[in-house]
């Protein structure tokens, strides 16, 4: 599929900010299931770039003169193929074991720990089936709802609430996998839907779990499916914090307002 992404993030501040620095993980890499035809990230100032430990391309935005807003624009085209959600082990920098340990956001505690314990046996018996069942169960049990959680919410919090956004749903999935000793990672990216080109107000996120015979298998809890050719994979990590599209700090600036618009369209149409 030929996917065209247009993604704009605008931050505006109540008072001029004195300085800002952001890590931008907004650039997809080449994978077995996607090839990047063109991709551009633009914003104020000069970017520097590095590849992080998880293999993501990171742009660094830094502003040291007063500013009242920052607008980031992403525009790119990617050809994708459907691999039934399977990504063969590529040139990862490390063994999947790096993704086996819980993080602060993906530690199964309280209700979630109980839930994870209950599902440990089926996961151990037949991993792939177990993972699919887990995704379906979580899809039903944790409703997609905006505004009940925030970027720092933990998997256990969101599970207790029974609601959250795709980030929380992915975190819960990761927490359960890791509690069972299965390496699993967080993926951020974009998803095309047949919505007539309507704008969304957020990026998408899902999980990938390690299945020895296959490699990384994706699970999109929010939609209850494994990824298809409609998905563009951008960044990966142990949790949201490693793969966040934008992670930044600023000095001054007062209150912040953020506006995001994402438009994912089919380039063939």
């Amino acid at each position: 599929m030929h996917i065209v992404v247009e993604h704009e993030t605008a931050y505006s501040y109540g008072a001029p900010a004195r300085s800002t620095i952001q890590y931008l993980r907004l650039t997809p890499r080449q994978h077995a299931n996607q090839s990047v035809r063109s991709w551009q990230v633009t914003g104020p100032g000069k970017f520097t770039e590095f590849t992080d430990g998880f293999g993501n391309i990171v742009h660094v935005l830094s502003l040291t003169t007063p500013h009242e807003q920052i607008v980031l624009r992403v525009r790119g085209e990617v050809y994708t193929t459907d691999t039934h959600g399977v990504l063969p082990p590529e040139n990862d920098r490390c063994s999947p074991l790096v993704y086996a340990m819980p993080t602060r956001l993906t530690r199964a505690e309280g209700d979630l720990a109980e839930f994870a314990a209950g599902i440990r046996t089926p996961l151990a018996k037949e991993r792939l089936t177990g993972l699919h069942d887990l995704m379906v169960a979580l899809h039903k049990q944790v409703a997609y709802r905006l505004g009940v959680t925030d970027v720092e919410s933990t998997a256990s919090d969101a599970f207790r609430k029974g609601e959250g956004v795709c980030q929380d749903q992915a975190h819960i999935f990761l927490a359960v996998c890791r509690a069972a000793g299965i390496p699993a990672r967080y993926v951020s990216g974009y998803m095309w839907t047949d919505s007539g080109g309507r704008d969304y107000d957020a990026n998408h996120a899902w999980a990938e779990a390690w299945v020895p015979a296959l490699g990384w298998v994706s699970f999109d809890v929010a939609n209850g499916i494994s990824t298809t050719a409609s998905y563009v994979r951008v960044a990966q990590g142990r949790d949201y914090l490693d793969a966040a599209p934008v992670r930044g700090v600023r000095r001054g600036g007062g209150d912040e307002a953020m506006r995001v618009s994402v438009r994912v369209t089919d380039g063939q149409q």
Binding site: D52, G53, F54, G55, R93, C94, V98, M101, R238
Partner: peptide
């Protein structure tokens, strides 16, 4: 816990 995957490749 002391392993820093952020440093892989650096």
């Amino acid at each position: 816990a002391q392993f820093r995957p952020e440093m892989l490749g650096i």
